[in-house]
Nucleic acid binder design. Structure first.
Lengths: 340, 340
DNA sequence: TAATTGAATGCATACGTATGCATTTTAAAC
DNA sequence: GTTTAAAATGCATACGTATGCATTCAATTA
């Protein structure tokens, strides 16, 4: 039963040559309509499946996309950032929709994450997903470009490199949430998230944040910006540091939902009431955001659209088309963490 | 630059035959130590990578595991159950650790989800992940067995079929959380989760729940069991139905965290205080469970261990070893949703 | 020195498919 | 009834690797 069926077996049964079988199964216009039907019927009957290895070897196309998920190595080993997990889900769906299989691989930022998928012909192209902290990240992008690997990445555009990116308008998102808090009559704003060293995404959000303050004639207080990476714990600690400074503030803009959630807990543990004493906004709109208490107001990134755009652009790239970087808008999701 | 390098190119540069190159790169003991080093050096210099398609075709091994994630078709299209997402993460890690790539595929329960991965030689084996509702699920398992596909599945053991499963002891988990609530001096228990039609996992949890009640001389009130699938919304609605019945209860055992979180919101919206008026426990320990307010007490399933077990057992199966189904214990995670 | 052995390498082929080119069959045109 | 074109099929080969078998070479033994 499990003795491998080949196209020759089908050919024999159908009384045609192997070539004709191959053509029939690929719906080549070269084969007679009736022959095609007969061959396909026999293939189905014998439960024959085309060997993808042989097929890929011959055509030099794998019908597979590789997803490289790389994470902040400072992060806990066992957990994956839920935002990226959500992206993973939508990318999986998007590739399935296009008839591509998805090869998923996790990478510690430090490793050789350019990872050969296209070189080894296992994938036709690569999607890069992760917060890029720009130490050796950029250098690796350069390497990918030099190897002429087909790839797209999630995130902010990279200055100077011709890399196709799909990302959110982080600046505008940061502006958006901040303005929402301002309209809530808050006066003194803290920002939680790594700005100097961290990811360009966080920086852009911070810049949008500052711009909103300026546009409303509010002061940007640098000492109210605290570094944090995108975890609950880091958010919690950052909020504690913030309190420890003794400077008055009545609003927290977090660079991500995880940070916001950690900060919310810290503030509540410290006896503050959210939103009465402190307004909090996040960024991403992860699943948990709607379940916190109070539910978190945040800037939503549309992961479903993002997944589709990434896949579409990658496939265009693979087929030799010219592709542009694209910025998606964020949506303000108003819940309870800023008051009314 | 991107003109494909083959082992013949390496052979030419090294002044040896292609066979020797192949052997050298696979660390065959047949090649001279120094030859091996020279070949490997040249390969590295030329950035040569073995073509996996050719290699897999020749060896009939793909070095790839396929993960089939299937979901309740009633579920929202864009979201994936966070518990399975977490499993996905740990499975990815576990396969990477074993040197295998992971092919991820989503399936609507209704489709032909046996999905050919092994037949087409893209994967050496398959991991099945999802709540199995046993309508046509079992029939498809039979088909997989008949095709002699190598696969393992997450979940409860399947009676009568020789299928390797890795799952949690749902009965004991249900017992555990229920007992915890009982010890909290609650008297009247509701259970939220599909029992009759739904997954055997939910049923086992319910059975454990009932057993705990019996063992403590408490009454099982069938009308306090409400069907629900594993989403927030379903949990919310189930809790509303529960309230509408007008029967008094002071504890809710939910078949999953998502259900519990939805129910918690419903109770709070209806003016109940959790945990003072109502104790709530969940099942899974998803990330969100620690962020609800009050934080959710639940039975934790160890996804990291689960991922490793699934991968290990699958690989053993592939290599022809005898493999046993395994049940993992759940851990009670006490937080705030039941009081002290 | 010839015979024997073991290590190292090369030769040839198979894995299963897809496709350019040659060939056959069928229909159309004259 | 012959020529011509079009449609359908078959033949042969290449994709890049891994491996059984034959061969070469150096080292050892008698």
């Amino acid at each position: 039963m499990r003795s491998k069926q080949t196209s020759f077996d089908i050919a024999y049964r159908a009384g045609v040559s192997q070539s004709t079988v191959s053509r029939a199964l690929r719906n080549s216009p070269l084969v007679n309509e009736e022959t095609r039907r007969r061959v396909q019927a026999i293939a189905k009957e014998l439960n024959y499946k085309v060997d993808k290895n042989a097929s890929s070897l011959r055509t030099q196309q794998s019908g597979t996309i590789a997803l490289l998920l790389f994470e902040d190595p400072t992060n806990d080993d066992s957990l994956i950032n839920p935002f990226f997990l959500s992206m993973l889900g939508s990318i999986t769906r998007a590739s399935a929709k296009k008839g591509y299989d998805l090869l998923v691989s996790f990478q510690q930022m430090s490793n050789d994450w350019h990872a050969d998928f296209e070189d080894t012909r296992k994938a036709d192209g690569i999607i890069l997903l992760g917060y890029g902290d720009y130490t050796d990240y950029e250098e690796k992008l350069v390497q990918l470009i030099k190897q002429q690997t087909h790839f797209v990445r999630w995130g902010a555009d990279v200055k100077g490199l011709s890399v196709v990116s799909v990302g959110c308008d982080n600046f505008h998102g940061g502006y958006q949430v901040t303005e929402h808090v301002i309209n809530n009559n808050r006066k003194s704003f803290a920002f939680l998230g790594g700005v100097s060293s961290g990811s360009p995404e966080f920086l852009a959000r911070y810049n949008g944040h500052c711009q909103a303050l300026k546009d409303h004639n509010l002061k940007v207080e640098p000492s109210l910006q605290i570094d944090a990476i995108s975890t609950n714990e880091s958010g919690y600690q950052a909020a504690q540091q913030l309190i420890a400074k003794g400077i008055k503030f009545d609003a927290i803009c977090a660079a991500s939902d995880l940070i916001a959630i950690g900060a919310m807990r810290a503030m509540q543990d410290a006896g503050y009431n959210v939103p009465d004493d402190i307004a909090i906004v996040g960024f991403d709109d992860i699943a948990t955001a709607s379940s916190t208490s109070p539910a978190l107001t945040t800037a939503k990134q549309d992961t479903v659209l993002a997944g589709e755009l990434l896949v579409d652009k990658l496939l265009q790239l693979v087929s030799g088309e010219e592709v542009q970087t694209q910025l998606m808008p964020t949506t303000l999701v108003v819940r309870k963490s800023c008051g009314s």
